[in-house]
Design a protein around this nucleic acid. Structure first.
Lengths: 195, 195
DNA sequence: TGAGTTATGTACCAAACAGTACAATAGTCA
DNA sequence: TGACTATTGTACTGTTTGGTACATAACTCA
């Protein structure tokens, strides 16, 4: 089957390790040295398997979107819209303050420092975030159609409000907030919900 | 009075220029080249006047705290607590999406990428943020004492909730959100307020 | 076995980075 | 005027960065 010398590492778990490093440090602050030592491989193997740093980040981003960040999609499957919102916020706390991952959110962590030649990186992160936003907004539209929300409900503004809360949770978590502090924010937000 | 060759630049406006660059790019992504060209001086002048990059950032941070970030302190002076909260959020939109400044918030922009030897930077940013949080929480305590809020009101959780919204606004703004989109988030938050 | 193919490890490259040495310059003070 | 002092501009240093050349090793296929 596969010709040539076989790989001594598993491509998927190496990508997971790279994702974790990017999650913790962001794209620009992560060095190739950080990546190779976390992935357990050396530089030429990294470049041969994943292209360059940018290309590796895009692969890690895709993995993040379908793994850790899938909690958004899952939460929106709740049949009642209030349960969907609650699960969205609680799962955001889990994501932003999990024991098995870095703190915060990869999308927030890598988005802010706007370096010079990182336009593609930022457009990809923006796309991932936009995807989450659209998913939430669509769920609110569905709730309007099902009569759970009034007809004049502003789905776009509300979805953006939830995204702001989620980003805020990610920022506070990355800054060292405790799990209890994040949970207290969610409790306040849920208590305020007029739904 | 001042001996030696006189400065050809104004120290305060140079510091303002440096603050703007840090605001836009964050600490780590900002290079000395970025700073000197924005400040209109050359490298030795920068080091002679402000120490090193870290020391310059701390001075810029102090200037930010007493300038742009003073909107928090100002908002909390509103006599009625609901007005204080409203002014806090609206002024955050102004700060995060002003025409004369970069988008976003310096504290959020420079806080996330956790580099290696930047502990002092992060502790200083954390301190500045903590100061804003404490100011908001104290204002809520005052409202409880004045009878504007119920006695079992959780000031700490609510202050953290507001901080999360503000950070979320900063993230969305830095990511390219329009002013109207930020305003729509604030409208939702204010409509939900049970105060 | 041996040709072909792919991965590995060392050692390297050019560019960008923060920070500085040093001579020249432009003022103040006596 | 001349000694003194502080800033300026050029050119440099050592280090770290992303990325790669090249020889060697390990596998498949005929």
């Amino acid at each position: 089957m596969s010709r040539g010398r076989p790989r001594t590492f598993d491509s998927d778990s190496a990508l997971d390790a790279a994702m974790t490093v990017f999650w913790e440090k962001g794209f620009e602050a992560t060095t190739i040295e950080d990546l190779t030592s976390a992935m357990g491989i050396n530089r030429p193997s990294l470049y041969a398997a994943f292209g360059n740093k940018e290309s590796l980040f895009l692969k890690a981003l895709e993995r993040y979107a379908q793994g850790p960040a899938a909690h958004v999609v899952n939460a929106m499957k709740q049949p009642r819209v209030r349960d969907a919102i609650a699960e969205l916020l609680w799962s955001t706390v889990d994501l932003a303050h999990g024991t098995s991952h870095p703190q915060g959110c990869l999308l927030v962590q890598s988005a802010l420092p706007s370096g010079s030649g990182t336009e593609l990186i930022h457009r990809s992160i923006e796309a991932a975030r936009e995807s989450g936003y659209r998913r939430i907004r669509m769920r609110m539209e569905q709730a309007k159609n099902e009569g759970e929300l009034p007809g004049d409900f502003d789905s776009a503004a509300f979805a953006r409000y939830l995204m702001a809360l989620m980003h805020g949770l990610a920022v506070q978590s990355a800054q060292g907030a405790t799990r209890g502090q994040l949970q207290s924010v969610v409790k306040v937000a849920l208590r305020f919900l007029p739904i």
